[in-house]
Amino acid sequence: MKIAYDAKRFFHNTSGLGNYSRDLVRILAEFYPQNQYILLNKNKSELGRDILDLPNVSFVKTSDGTMSRQFKMGKDAQNVGADIFHGLSGELPLKWNKKPIKKVVTIHDLIFVRFPQYYTWFDRKIHFWKFRKAANTADRIIAISQQTKEDIIHFLKIKENKIDVVYQGCHAGFKEKPTDEFLEQVKEKFDLPDRFVLNVGTIEERKNLLNVVKALKDSGIPLVVVGSRKKKKYVKKIESEIRKNGVEVYFLQDVSMEELASVYRLADIFIYPSFFEGFGIPVIEALFSETVVITSNTSCLPEAGGPDSVYVNPDNVDDIKAKILFLWDNESERKRRVEKGLQFAQKFNDDVIAKDLMKVYEGL
Rank of each mutant, 00 (worst) to 15 (best):
D164A: 15
T298P: 02
F326C: 06
Q70H: 10
F122S: 12
S228F: 08
P307E: 10
V317M: 10
R124Y: 03
L252V: 09
P55S: 10
V263K: 01
I281G: 02
N199V: 05
N19H: 13
L287I: 09
P302R: 10
N43L: 04
N97I: 10
V292G: 01
E184L: 11
I51D: 02
F112V: 04
S15T: 13
Q346T: 14
Q70W: 07
W96A: 05
V166Y: 08
I238M: 06
E46W: 07
I142D: 00
K98Y: 07
V255S: 09
K323I: 01
K323E: 11
L216G: 01
L266C: 05
L54G: 03
S262K: 06
I38H: 00
A261S: 15
D268R: 08
E181A: 14
N330Q: 06
M67V: 01
L342E: 06
K130P: 00
Y5L: 04
L364W: 12
P100H: 07
I101M: 15
Y361C: 14
R336F: 12
S58C: 09
S289V: 05
K231H: 12
E150A: 14
I152M: 07
K214S: 09
S332C: 04
T106C: 12
L24T: 13
K237D: 14
K157C: 09
S219R: 07
P178C: 12
N330C: 02
F131K: 12
E188S: 13
P33Y: 08
N316C: 11
T295V: 10
L17H: 11
I281L: 13
P116M: 10
N199L: 09
I324V: 15
E339Y: 12
T66K: 15
G90W: 04
A215H: 02
P193R: 04
M1H: 13
P55I: 08
Y361D: 14
M67F: 13
Q346P: 01
L47C: 04
F276C: 13
K75R: 15
I158T: 10
V212G: 01
F190T: 02
N330P: 02
L183C: 09
F122N: 10
F279Y: 15
Y119V: 04
I84C: 03
F31V: 03
G227H: 04
G278K: 03
G18H: 00
C300L: 08
